[in-house]
């Protein structure tokens, strides 16, 4: 086609709505966040911003964050290092517990078991429910009072008799005894948060893997069967290598999802300090303490980490693929 000025203008016009949205709301804010993160910036109504270099980043990873108004240390127990470690623990749990579980279910379902569509649809269902709802529902499940179903079940079976003292013995962050406050102690809160995450997202990864397995050419599977491969061998040598691109997507999703995670912890716990994540820390700094510079520094750390992990995971999957072929 012709490359006239009008042709170029039309191309530009077609791209314009997307560009305005994308640059205005995603790209420009990244630059702005980076700019804010090197400034001391505590009020959005005033335009006064003091350049502080990397001070915000240093503050973020040091143990003392002083509230300038009160002079009090307000974040001695919720600094960024802990939050990052927590989100990485969630990432590790997701990759090494959630994804294998999803893969096992997907492998079993895709082999033409009776009622596979019904199973698939039920397992995927929690993905559609808002994470806030799930967090709140689990808050009720964990409720330490009479109504909480988990503790009621433990009491009914007598498991609380040995389980609660056992957990109490392992709690070092507090002198209180554990009597079923799953989200109340640092030692239990993160695990309590992981269970609903597992519950919600196993179905998501399972669906993707299932779709991938259904895409494996049937000739490959038939040939393997003729060669006398066992089910395990077929899974290991044919199906899993074939769906590697999907496994990559799942790993990236699980890791970056854990870094970004906010909704569940925010809905699940009255006090997020017990399982602080970068997002909940950022929320507090911004909207409880008006520390926009510090909050922006967290945003920048998250952007960098998300891209770094996406890149690393892509590289890891590519290298292995090359060795195989």
């Amino acid at each position: 086609m012709k490359r006239t000025f009008t042709y170029r203008l039309h191309i530009f016009l077609f791209l314009l709505p997307a560009l305005i949205l994308f640059v205005g709301i995603l790209i420009a804010p990244i630059v702005m966040s980076a700019w804010y993160s090197v400034h001391d910036f505590n009020s959005i109504s005033s335009t006064k911003m003091d350049f502080v270099g990397l001070d915000n980043y240093v503050t973020l990873f040091s143990r003392e964050m002083i509230n300038p108004e009160t002079g009090k240390v307000f974040a001695n127990d919720k600094f960024m290092g802990d939050a990052l470690v927590n989100s990485l623990i969630l990432a590790v749990l997701s990759v090494f517990i959630q994804l294998p579980l999803s893969l096992i279910i997907a492998l079993k379902l895709s082999k033409g078991i009776r009622g596979e569509r019904a199973y698939l649809s039920i397992f995927f269902m929690p993905v559609l429910i808002s994470t806030v709802i799930i967090g709140r529902l689990w808050m009720n499940i964990y409720d330490p009072g009479k109504a909480g179903i988990l503790n009621a079940a433990l009491r009914a079976t007598g498991a609380d008799q040995w389980l609660f003292p056992w957990i109490s013995g392992r709690i070092t962050s507090s002198k209180l005894a554990f009597t079923g406050q799953w989200t109340g102690f640092r030692e239990t809160a993160l695990g309590a948060a992981f269970v609903p995450i597992l519950w919600q997202y196993v179905g998501y990864h399972m669906l993707l893997m299932y779709a991938g397995i259904k895409g494996v050419p049937s000739e490959l599977l038939e040939a393997a069967e003729l060669d006398g491969c066992s089910e395990g061998q077929v899974n290991r040598h044919i199906i899993i290598p074939y769906i590697k691109p999907i496994l990559k997507v799942s790993v990236i999703f699980a890791v970056t999802g854990s870094l970004k995670s906010f909704d569940l912890i925010y809905a699940l716990m009255k006090d997020t300090t017990k399982a602080e994540l970068p997002s909940t820390l950022m929320y507090k700094l911004l909207f409880l303490h008006n520390r926009y510079g510090l909050g922006s520094a967290i945003a920048v750390v998250l952007i960098v980490l998300c891209f770094a992990f996406a890149l690393l995971i892509t590289l890891a999957f590519r290298d292995k693929g090359e060795k195989v072929s």
Binding site: L26, A28, S33, K260, I303
Partner: peptide, 10 residues
């Protein structure tokens, strides 16, 4: 890949 956190403050 860009997390929504990037946009919150700006």
């Amino acid at each position: 890949t860009i997390p929504i956190h990037a946009s919150i403050v700006p």
